[in-house]
Computed example of a mutant assay.
Amino acid sequence: MSKDDNYDYDEETYIPVYRPLKEIEQYELVNALGRLTFFKDDSFLRMQAHNLALVDLFLMDLEYKILAELIETERTPLEAMFLSAQSQMWIFSIYELMRTWKQRVSEIVKWSKAGGLELKIKYYEEMGYNQQGRLRRAKQLKQVLADKSIVGAIENDLRLIHVVYSRLEAIRVLMAKHELVGNPKSVAFMPGYGRINRWCGSLDYELENETAIIGYISRRDIADEVRGLIKATPMSEEDVKAFDLYMRGPKPNKLKDLF
């Protein structure tokens, strides 16, 4: 997977291009997430998306200020410690928001294919009182029961977010658990350590698998990739498998076969 798949680069200099802060609107991140099935009509998911968008703008401003001070003084500003802490908290938060949506709609697909929607609707509605959260879930399931094309839309959305979510999950697990995603026996190389990106000021973190450092990702990269979902198209199943293979890399005992 080339760098061009994750970032915009100048065609002549191959320097990453980040949009100026003044051109980025708060609604962009919210609208991008809002295109996902059953996200926009959930007021609490939207509320969390707005929170993330507000903090994103605040952190971008701080990132550029820290970068400017680094260039001027040739020393890492003390504020970089605060930026590091807030960047990790923002990454954890957007991961949990996307994980919540992903888990919820994945269950809807599973229940629909297993013929269990009516039982789940009954489960959500039989509380004896009006619990609005459960009633909202029941309403969504009734929509799927009435229109099975929604399942296809969800599956498209899951492929749409696959790269963004997989990279986000990988760095979140590295930071939070100090291990590799899907491998609880592993030990991360440098979990949570970031270097100031020379183009946007966000902290670059290493992405790794069992055999190598496979790239870098920053909080800004994640935010831009999420914003980019508004115009993105779903991956094919073949591309999903190829990307997953790239992320996993070869097993350590297979490295000798590469040389």
Rank of each mutant, 00 (worst) to 15 (best):
R159L: 13
E23D: 11
R99D: 13
R159Q: 03
P234M: 05
L119V: 11
A68K: 15
A138D: 00
L135Q: 14
L57D: 08
R136W: 05
F189A: 11
R137H: 05
M1E: 11
S87V: 03
Q88L: 13
Q143E: 10
L21A: 12
F189V: 10
A232Y: 05
D61T: 10
L158T: 09
V144T: 05
E206Y: 11
G194H: 06
W101P: 07
I91E: 01
L117I: 15
M47Q: 14
Q48V: 00
I91D: 00
S106Y: 03
F92P: 04
V55G: 02
L78W: 05
S2C: 10
V144I: 09
L52Y: 05
E72R: 12
L67W: 05
M127R: 14
V163D: 10
M47A: 15
S236H: 08
K177E: 15
T233C: 06
A223F: 07
F189L: 11
Y27D: 14
Q86P: 00
E125T: 11
Y123T: 05
N183A: 10
S166H: 02
D56N: 15
F259V: 14
T211R: 12
W111F: 11
P16Q: 03
L62D: 07
D244Q: 10
G133C: 01
E238T: 12
K139E: 06
K251L: 14
V109M: 06
C200W: 02
Y129I: 04
I196M: 14
F44S: 15
I154D: 06
T73C: 09
L57N: 09
D10M: 04
Q103V: 15
T100A: 13
E74M: 12
K241M: 10
A49L: 11
L36Y: 05
V105M: 05
A153Q: 14
E107C: 11
K65W: 00
D239A: 11
F92Y: 12
N31V: 01
I196A: 07
F44W: 10
R220K: 15
M1N: 10
Y129F: 13
N130T: 02
A138I: 01
E179K: 14
T211E: 12
D244V: 02
K102D: 04
V109Q: 08
A170S: 14
G201Y: 02
R219H: 08
N209I: 04
K148R: 12
M89K: 13
A176G: 09
F243A: 10
F58H: 14
L83H: 11
I230K: 15
S236I: 02
L117H: 03
Y123R: 06
K177S: 08
V105H: 04
